[in-house]
Amino acid sequence: MSSNQTDIPASAYDMSHIDEADERRTLAIIVDNEPGVLGRVVGLFSARGYNIESLTVAEVDRRRHRSRITVVTNGSPQMLEQIEAQLLRLVPVASVTDMTKSKRGVERELALIKVAGTGDKRVEALRIAEIFRARVIDTTNESFIFELTGASDKIDQFCALMRPLGLNEVSRTGVLSIKRGAEPG
């Protein structure tokens, strides 16, 4: 928000706040990849007042037409139980896995980060990028684009460090997750 003269939020939705008792969860939703399926999932979240912090979706099994939707959400334990049950009511939803609760979940996010600057700031940006093992995928005399994968908070941290050095654009995939170990699912 740019305005600091007034307390009025920019949007009505800025007024909502996360409750203390709320928990954050990453859900892996396996669905039949058919037209409108993402609309059903997203529509369910908005219709029932559930939150979506991040969302990723892509087909993961071409032969069986299965897509994997990863949603990061938050809510009270009762709401989280409802979210799973409501998702399973959707006909094209094959399964819902709570990756956070499973403990075996690993989470990664990919970000593309543009930092524009010259002189010392440019050198410093490159030095921090090395520490974070971010790759430079595009460069001009006054800018870099970094590619960075990692847990979401690592990307947050990287962005925070880059901000004073000229960060001017960020594109993130949202969270992906998978379970450790040999077994699928």
Partner: peptide
């Protein structure tokens, strides 16, 4: 028959 009815309003 609908699991989402369980614990929706009353535990």
């Amino acid at each position: 028959i609908d699991p989402s009815s369980i614990n929706k309003v009353i535990s």
